[in-house]
C-alpha cells in the first residue's frame, strides 16, 4: 500500500517490528495512522472515538503481527483490524448510550476568527459526511484525505475498482450538494 518517502517497504518494517524494533513500529504508525483514522472515522463519525480506536487498533495489530501472513499488504490487514474494532465500539456505544448515532466531529475550542472558520467548516463537513454510507465515507476519506488509489481502496475494502470509483463519485456529488454551492466554491477546489 502507500509508502512514505523512504524506500523502506511495509514488509521490511513489519519484519523489524516483529523483532521488537520500536522505530520500525513507529514508522508503521506514522505511515498508516491517517488511513486507519479515515476508516474509523467513517464508521464512528467522531474524531475522538476514531483516534481511540486507531490507538487500540495499532496495539492489537502489534500483538497479532505474527498473524499478518502477507506483510506487503500490512495496510489492508491493519485496516480490517481497525474496521472490526470500530464496528464493535459502535455497537457498544449504541447499547451504552441508547441514542441514535450522529456524525459528530470534535470542535476544538478556539477564539481566533480563522479557527472559528475551521470549526464551522468541520461542522459542515461532519453534517455532510453523516449523510453518506459507511462505505462511501471510507472511500472518499481514503481517496481524498489519504490519497489512496482506487486499486488500493478496492483491495483494502474487498470491493472492485469500479465499485470504488462509483462510491467516490456518488460520495463527492452528495458532499458537494450537502455543503452547498457557496461553501463548495469557497472551500473546495
Amino acid at each position: 500500500m502507500r509508502q512514505s518517502s523512504t524506500s523502506v517497504t511495509d514488509a521490511s518494517l513489519v519484519e523489524q517490528a516483529r523483532s521488537g524494533s520500536t522505530p520500525a513500529f513507529e514508522e508503521l504508525v506514522r505511515r498508516h495512522f491517517r488511513a486507519a483514522y479515515a476508516v474509523a472515522l467513517a464508521i464512528l463519525g467522531n474524531q475522538m472515538d476514531a483516534e481511540d480506536v486507531c490507538h487500540d487498533g495499532f496495539l492489537k495489530a502489534l500483538e497479532r503481527l505474527d498473524d499478518c501472513r502477507n506483510p506487503d499488504k500490512f495496510a489492508a490487514w491493519l485496516l480490517q483490524i481497525v474496521r472490526n474494532r470500530a464496528r464493535n465500539y459502535r455497537a457498544y456505544r449504541k447499547v451504552r448510550d441508547a441514542v441514535p448515532l450522529e456524525f459528530t466531529v470534535a470542535v476544538a475550542k478556539s477564539d481566533s476568527a480563522r479557527d472559528v472558520d475551521q470549526s464551522e467548516l468541520r461542522r459542515l463537513l461532519q453534517d455532510a459526511l453523516g449523510k453518506l454510507t459507511d462505505v462511501q465515507r471510507e472511500v472518499v476519506l481514503l481517496h481524498d484525505m489519504e490519497g489512496w488509489k482506487h486499486r488500493e481502496i478496492a483491495q483494502a475494502l474487498g470491493i472492485s475498482e469500479v465499485a470504488a470509483r462509483q462510491h467516490l463519485f456518488v460520495a463527492r456529488r452528495q458532499l458537494r450538494e450537502s455543503l452547498g454551492p457557496q461553501v463548495a466554491k469557497e472551500y473546495l477546489p
Partner: peptide, 9 residues
C-alpha cells in the same frame, strides 16, 4: 478532491 484538511488528524 474534497478538501478534508479540517478533519485531517
Amino acid at each position: 478532491r474534497i478538501d478534508f484538511s479540517p478533519i485531517d488528524p
